[in-house]
């Protein structure tokens, strides 16, 4: 339980970074990085799944409150947390996840982490952008936004691992 303060601190920092920096970045409306999803990515393996859902929902709701999009991030984050166990299972390394490890670059290597990040961020961005558009008519334009933003967010997340989350 001594990890709890770290997660609370990370939560606050990520929300602040998202609101004041990443939400201000927009390249021609195509790329909107949502860096804060890193919080859900880094939650421990052994966390109760329902607690994870609630955390993700609360995280999304916090972002929503500051960006005037009530419900959209909450829905996308909850969806992301819901799919996380399945994704982790799908991309698990050959000798499975060891006890007392975290889903980070340092335990499972760059390749694993990049794959994990791309899949999870894609799931989140896909849900978020389509909820934001709320129709299928501009499907491919929205899909382009999803792909570009996924690449950019994932890039930021992977790079951040080497700068700020050293062991």
């Amino acid at each position: 339980m001594n990890r709890l303060p770290i997660y609370i601190f990370r939560f606050i920092i990520l929300v602040l970074l998202q609101i004041f920096i990443f939400s201000q970045i927009q390249f021609s409306n195509l790329i909107n990085p949502y860096f804060y999803v890193l919080f859900v990515l880094l939650l421990p393996f052994d966390m109760p799944r329902s607690a994870m859902l609630l955390m993700a929902f609360f995280l999304g709701l916090t972002i929503d409150l500051f960006s005037n999009t009530l419900g959209m991030h909450a829905a996308a984050c909850t969806w992301m947390a819901f799919t996380r166990p399945a994704v982790l299972k799908w991309i698990s390394p050959r000798e499975d996840y060891e006890a007392d490890t975290l889903p980070t670059v340092h335990y499972y290597g760059l390749r694993w982490f990049v794959g994990y990040t791309l899949v999870m961020v894609f799931l989140h961005h896909f849900a978020l952008f389509f909820i934001e558009m709320f129709r299928w008519s501009d499907f491919f334009a929205t899909l382009a936004r999803v792909f570009l933003s996924t690449l950019f967010t994932s890039f930021l997340i992977v790079v951040s691992q080497f700068f700020f989350f050293r062991k």
């Binding site: 799944r49 329902s50 859902l53 609630l54 929902f57 999304g60 709701l61 929503d64 999009t69 009530l70 419900g71 959209m72 909450a74 829905a75 909850t78 969806w79 819901f82 909820i131 709320f134």
Partner: peptide, 20 residues
């Protein structure tokens, strides 16, 4: 897990529809 997911999504989507 599934039920909680559905509940939270319902809340979130109804917030989306109600406030946007």
């Amino acid at each position: 897990f599934l039920l909680l997911f559905l509940l939270l999504e319902t809340i979130a989507i109804s917030l989306v529809i109600r406030y946007n």
